[in-house]
Nucleic acid binder design. Structure first.
Lengths: 208, 208
DNA sequence: GTCTATAGTAAGATAGAC
DNA sequence: GTCTATCTTACTATAGAC
C-alpha cells in the first residue's frame, strides 16, 4: 500500500514536474520567437501564449509578467554565453596559456562566436526595445563581466580606468551587434578577427 | 484705416507667434525636467503640461504626442551638438589644421565637452528608456555622423570598415556616457583626454 | 492657439473554476 | 498547474468651447 502510494506520488510529481517544465520551456521558446519577430513593445502577451499553446494564467504562474518573461529569456542567454566563455578560457589555461590579455581574447572570441550562433537574440537585445530599465540591467551585467577581466588586465577604479572598462565593453558589444546583423558566417568571422586586432591595439594592459 | 488694420494684424500675429513659441519652449523645458527626473516611461504627459503651465491640448497641438515631444527634445540636443562640432572643426581648419584624424579629434573633443554641459540629457538618452524605436533612431544618427567622418578617415563599406565605424561610435558614445555620470569637471576632462588617446591608438586611418 | 473635460483603447494583470 | 473570462487602470488622443 504504502509503497504503491509512494510510487504513484513520485510518478505523479515527476510527471507534473515534467509538464511544468515543458510549459516553461514552451513559453520561453515562444517568447524568443515572438519577441525576435516583433520586439518587446509590439509583442502582446496573448500572442506568446498562443504560440506556446499555453495560457495567460500559466505565463503569470511561471514568470509573473511580460517584463519578467523577457528578462528570463535574457538570463538564459547570458548564462549560456558565460558558460561558453568560461569553458573556452579554462581550456586555454589547460593548454598552458597564462598571459592575461591572451586569455581575455580567448573569452572575447568565444563570446563573439556565441553572438553568431544566437544572432536572433543578439538583435533583440541590441534593438534597445526592452522593458524599462532593461538597458541598464544589460549594461550592468556586461560591464561586470568586463570589469572582472579588466582587473586582471590591470585596471583600477579611477575615471580613466572606468573608461577603459567601458570602451572594452563597447567594442565587444559593438562587434557582437555587427555580427548579429551579418548573414554570412564568413563576415562574422572577419569581424571577430578584426575585433581581436583592435583590442590588441588598444593594449588595455598599458593604458595607464 | 488700412494702415491701422494692417498694423493691428501684424502686431496680433507677432504676439501670437510669440505666445506660440513661448508655449513650445515652456513645454520643451518642462519635458527636459520631467523626463530627466523620471525617464520616459514613468513620465505622465499631464505632469509635463502641469510643470509647463500649459495643457494637454497644447502639447498635442505643438508636438503630436508624448513620443514626438521626446524626439523633439532629442533633436534640439542633436542640432546643438552638431553645431558645436562643425564650428570647432571649421575653426581648426581656419587655424591651418588639415590632417583628417586631427580634425576628427577636434570634433570629438567638442562633442565630449557638450556632453558635460548637457549631462542631464546625456543620461536621459543613455538610459535606454525612450519611446519604442528611439534607440535605433539614436544609433542611426550617431553612426551617420561618424560614418561621414570615417569616410574621410579612409573607411569603406566592407564588414571590417563597418566595425571600425561602429567601434568609433561606441567609444565616443561610451565616453559621453561616462562623462554624463561624472560629478566633477576635472574627471570629465580626464575622460575626454583619455578618449583622444584611445582613438589615436586605434589609428582608424590604418586599420585596413 | 489654448484649454478642459471626456472618450477610447488596449494591454497587462487577476480571480476562480477545473 | 492550467485555463478562460473578466477587470482595471492608466494613458493617449480628441472634441469642442473660448
Amino acid at each position: 500500500m504504502t509503497r504503491k502510494a509512494v510510487r504513484t506520488t513520485a510518478r505523479d510529481s515527476a510527471w507534473q514536474w515534467n509538464r511544468s517544465e515543458q510549459t516553461r520551456r514552451a513559453l520561453l521558446d515562444a517568447a524568443r520567437e515572438i519577441f525576435c519577430e516583433q520586439g518587446f513593445t509590439d509583442s502582446a502577451i496573448v500572442a506568446v501564449v498562443r504560440r506556446a499553446g499555453s495560457s495567460v494564467g500559466s505565463l503569470y504562474h511561471h514568470f509573473g509578467g511580460k517584463t519578467e518573461l523577457f528578462v528570463a529569456l535574457w538570463e538564459d542567454y547570458e548564462d549560456a554565453r558565460e558558460r561558453d566563455a568560461s569553458e573556452a578560457v579554462a581550456q586555454a589555461k589547460e593548454a598552458g596559456e597564462t598571459d592575461p590579455l591572451e586569455l581575455f581574447l580567448v573569452g572575447t572570441r568565444s563570446f563573439l562566436d556565441g553572438c553568431w550562433r544566437r544572432r536572433d537574440l543578439v538583435r533583440l537585445w541590441m534593438d534597445g526595445d526592452g522593458p524599462p530599465g532593461f538597458e541598464l540591467m544589460r549594461r550592468g551585467r556586461g560591464r561586470e563581466w568586463i570589469r572582472r577581466n579588466a582587473v586582471l588586465l590591470g585596471a583600477g577604479g579611477e575615471p580613466v580606468d572606468r573608461l577603459v572598462v567601458g570602451v572594452l565593453t563597447s567594442v565587444i558589444g559593438e562587434a557582437g551587434r555587427e555580427i548579429g546583423t551579418c548573414s554570412r558566417k564568413r563576415d562574422a568571422d572577419a569581424i571577430r578577427d578584426a575585433t581581436v586586432v583592435l583590442i590588441r591595439r588598444l593594449d588595455p594592459l598599458h593604458v595607464r
